[in-house]
């Protein structure tokens, strides 16, 4: 394995892990409500920016992180309660526009609460690069990979073992039936937005020391998260993780070996090609529609 390749690999997995977290957020909300939440990227921004400003006023990092995740989750609840819930039954496109409106609103609020500058967050454990197979890796990348792994395991446990997790899954399969067996679908929806927001915030916090953060970081990360969720198959948890990692790797390899200006073009061309052969993504369900 050449050092160059190792370097691209590590970069790809780091970025991919972030995409995976954002994509998981998309999928969880999609499963519970069939809404694509275009404000997902704003949770990323809220996570990063809140942590930056809380540490700036002297909060210890872990506390700031916890508060930022809670803040994002609260915004997620509010989004569900005040924007998505009142619009129940609206068409897919209408819901997309509502969440886009929400993302503009949140970005606008961010420029008011904070500013339009770019901010750095201190790395969790220093900046001294580690050498692996000839490639150098900032310790923050290890945090990104490690925490993403932990979150994926936690989510697996959550959806497989806990009542709320199962309620979420049941609601995604059949809302009416879930309601009939006594699941409070409204709580499930709230929970899904809160959980997605928290995931987004974690992604935003993890990546902030590497790429910096600002009022508009969410735009690009949200877009990539959506792309990853689609690539993996909308609504599929493993698909979101796979899609995120694949997207991160494609970008890193494309930028390294072909052209950094065209790395996104390469990524999207590959996504389009995949969709051409697998119209519901890599791990999406391929059922025959009933008529």
């Amino acid at each position: 394995m050449s050092a160059q390749f190792a370097q691209y690999l590590l970069t790809g997995v780091t970025v991919g892990a972030i995409y995976a977290l954002v994509a998981l957020g998309f999928s969880i909300i999609y499963n519970a409500s069939h809404v694509i939440n275009f404000a997902q990227g704003e949770f990323v921004m809220i996570g990063g920016m809140t942590t930056v400003s809380l540490t700036a006023i002297g909060w210890p990092l872990p506390l700031a992180i916890g508060a930022a995740v809670v803040a994002a989750a609260l915004v997620g609840f509010a989004l569900e309660k005040f924007a998505v819930e009142p619009a129940r039954g609206a068409s897919v496109v209408t819901l997309i526009i509502i969440t886009i409106g929400a993302s503009i609103l949140l970005r606008g609020l961010a420029t008011l609460v904070w500013d339009k500058n770019i901010h750095a967050l201190q790395a969790f454990s220093g900046d001294t690069p580690i050498q692996i197979a000839g490639a150098s890796l900032v310790p923050q990348s290890l945090w990104v990979m490690g925490i993403t792994l932990v979150i994926v395991l936690l989510l697996t446990w959550f959806f497989g073992r806990t009542l709320l997790g199962k309620a979420l899954l049941a609601t995604s399969h059949n809302r009416l039936a879930a309601q009939l067996v006594g699941i409070n679908v409204r709580h499930v929806l709230l929970a899904s937005f809160g959980l997605s927001a928290a995931l987004g915030a974690v992604a935003g916090i993890l990546v902030a020391p590497i790429t910096f953060t600002s009022w508009d970081v969410g735009v690009m990360l949200g877009l990539k998260g959506f792309a990853a969720a689609i690539l993996g198959g909308l609504g599929s948890g493993p698909g979101a993780v796979l899609g995120g990692l694949a997207l991160g790797l494609i970008e890193a390899m494309g930028a390294g070996y072909i052209s950094s200006a065209y790395k996104d073009v390469i990524a999207f061309v590959i996504i389009l090609a995949v969709l051409f052969f697998m119209p519901s993504g890599l791990l999406g369900t391929r059922s025959t529609d009933r008529v």
Partner: peptide
């Protein structure tokens, strides 16, 4: 001025919530 984005986003959301068609 600085409230432009907030107002724009809010108008978009409110219109679509209350006039989904």
């Amino acid at each position: 001025k600085e409230y432009e984005m907030v107002v724009f986003g809010a108008v978009m959301m409110l219109t679509m919530i209350f006039m989904p068609r």
